[in-house]
């Protein structure tokens, strides 16, 4: 079980959080102008990397805030945590 450093609350047990999938997938501003393929790319395509992955997490049993996490999925090491809207750290 991880310990996650919520940017709003500090270190908490993983059981207080919910994982929300890949980060930095912005909802298209004008969905109606996209082709089926482009929309499908947004809707369905997600990475599942063994290694460094950018993810969304939600402190659901705490402040309920969403934030981003960089995690190495091969050993669960959390490399960085940053707020929504902030730029991802450069590797």
């Amino acid at each position: 079980m991880f310990i996650i450093n919520c940017p709003f609350c500090g270190e908490r047990e993983q059981s207080e959080f919910k994982a929300g999938g890949e980060a930095h997938i912005e909802r298209p501003r004008q969905p109606t102008e996209l082709s089926d393929d482009e929309w499908a790319e947004y809707l369905f395509m997600r990475k599942n990397i063994k290694g460094i992955q950018f993810e969304r997490w939600n402190h659901i049993h705490g402040c309920r805030k969403w934030f981003n996490m960089v995690r190495d999925t091969s050993n669960d090491e959390i490399k960085a945590i940053y707020k929504m809207g902030e730029k991802p750290p450069v590797k």
């Binding site: 919910k18 929300g20 969304r56 939600n58 309920r64 969403w66 929504m84």
Partner: peptide
């Protein structure tokens, strides 16, 4: 509630 909060915080802040 969770879904609405998600959109408000991440897509439409």
């Amino acid at each position: 509630l969770g879904k609405l909060e998600d959109y408000l915080q991440t897509e439409w802040p």
